[in-house]
Amino acid sequence: MSQAHPHTHQHVHHEPDDSDGLAEILDLDAEVLAGHTASIAAWLPLRTGPRQVVDLGCGTGAGTFALLDRFPDAYVTAVDASAGHLRRLRAKACARGLEERVRTVQADLDATAWPDLGTPDLVWASASLHHLADPEHALGAVRELLAPGGVFAVVELAGFPRFLPEGAPDGRPGLEERCHAVVDRLQTEHMPHRGADWGPMLTAAGFTVEGLRTVAVDIEGTGSEAVGPYALAGLRRIRGAVATSLNPEDLTALDRLLDTNGPHSILRRDDLVVRTERTVWAARRT
């Protein structure tokens, strides 16, 4: 999870604040994938518990709160271009009694100069680096700010999750894949680093990659009440991107799924499964 979302994780660029339901998708993403995020945080090759953490492109805080939970002595600086996302993250921190352990910073990671982010022991970037126009610049900036021996965790999703079984929906099997194919074509020009192998770029930037892990995501819809709303919100956003490119029959079938009052609503299905992969590169400053 773009590699994470079809224009849903663009929280490293300036954009209208959440008018398109992006924050809702990020919150649902965090809820559904919470177990996987926690397992990734636990896997990181840290020599000691980090005290200072930076979450780059934090969105509404999925990584921030997973890291706060995993490392009880840590303080997190959450960085994002969206003021709306940061307000939402701050409200969550206050509601959880964690406001003293979170600092929010609004910044464009494509800017030449970054604000002062301290000297963190751990930098976390989940589904954010591939949105950057110049990720090599960002990797160099991370290396400069990391404490000696500090760890940089890059987390990417292999595409926005799929939810429908292979033969769905009735009459238009394969609809979801055709929608994603359109999204992929549209995004190739705007995000050339989508799907990149970050290992060589990390090495070139002066890091040693100490861990590489791919985690399969396969979550039954019956196991989380958030899966249905997550699928609905994600496919609504996809529709906005692909509407003019889908054939009329596919668009009609998609609209049936998105009609929450109709008999074919995706919320009425009991066969949804969240399917994707997460890849994590854990690199140490050398």
Rank of each mutant, 00 (worst) to 15 (best):
A127N: 11
P200D: 08
A42N: 09
E24F: 01
D20L: 03
A34T: 09
F152R: 00
A231Y: 15
V79R: 01
A113V: 15
A23E: 11
G159D: 08
T188G: 01
A113Q: 15
A216S: 10
V32F: 05
L117Y: 15
A78H: 07
C58N: 06
P6H: 15
T286I: 10
H137N: 13
H131F: 13
G174P: 12
V54A: 05
M191F: 14
A38K: 03
E99H: 12
V155R: 02
A216W: 04
A153N: 02
V227P: 11
R268Q: 06
E136W: 08
P169S: 14
W43T: 13
A42D: 09
Y75W: 14
A243M: 06
G97F: 15
I238F: 11
R162K: 11
E144G: 04
V183C: 05
L157T: 11
I266F: 12
F163I: 01
P192G: 07
D116G: 15
E156L: 00
V79L: 08
D69W: 10
R239G: 05
G195H: 07
E15L: 15
G211W: 03
L257S: 04
D55P: 15
A147H: 10
L22C: 10
E166H: 12
P263H: 09
L86G: 08
E31K: 14
L235K: 02
D69P: 04
T244G: 03
A138G: 02
V105M: 10
G240R: 09
L272N: 08
L251A: 06
A83C: 06
D270L: 00
W43P: 11
Q10N: 07
E136A: 14
K92V: 03
G61E: 13
L56I: 02
L28W: 11
A34I: 05
L257K: 07
D69H: 10
G174W: 10
S82M: 11
V215A: 00
R172W: 03
L164M: 07
V273H: 13
R194L: 04
T60F: 03
A66R: 01
V105H: 13
H9A: 00
H264K: 05
R103D: 06
M1D: 12
V142Q: 01
A4I: 02
L33E: 13
I266V: 12
E15A: 15
G150T: 15
W281D: 02
D170S: 14
V76P: 14
G223P: 06
D116M: 13
H11I: 06
P192H: 08
P165H: 12
P115I: 05
L109C: 08
T276L: 01
A147T: 08
A231N: 14
V182E: 10
S265I: 02
E156M: 01
A205E: 10
F71W: 15
F152K: 00
G211I: 04
D197E: 08
R256W: 10
I40G: 03
L139D: 08
L164S: 01
D80P: 10
L28T: 05
A138E: 00
A205S: 09
D255N: 12
P200F: 05
V154F: 00
G234N: 10
R178A: 01
E220F: 02
T208C: 08
A95D: 15
M191V: 08
L22A: 03
P165G: 13
A42H: 12
G199N: 03
H9R: 02
A78G: 12
A30C: 02
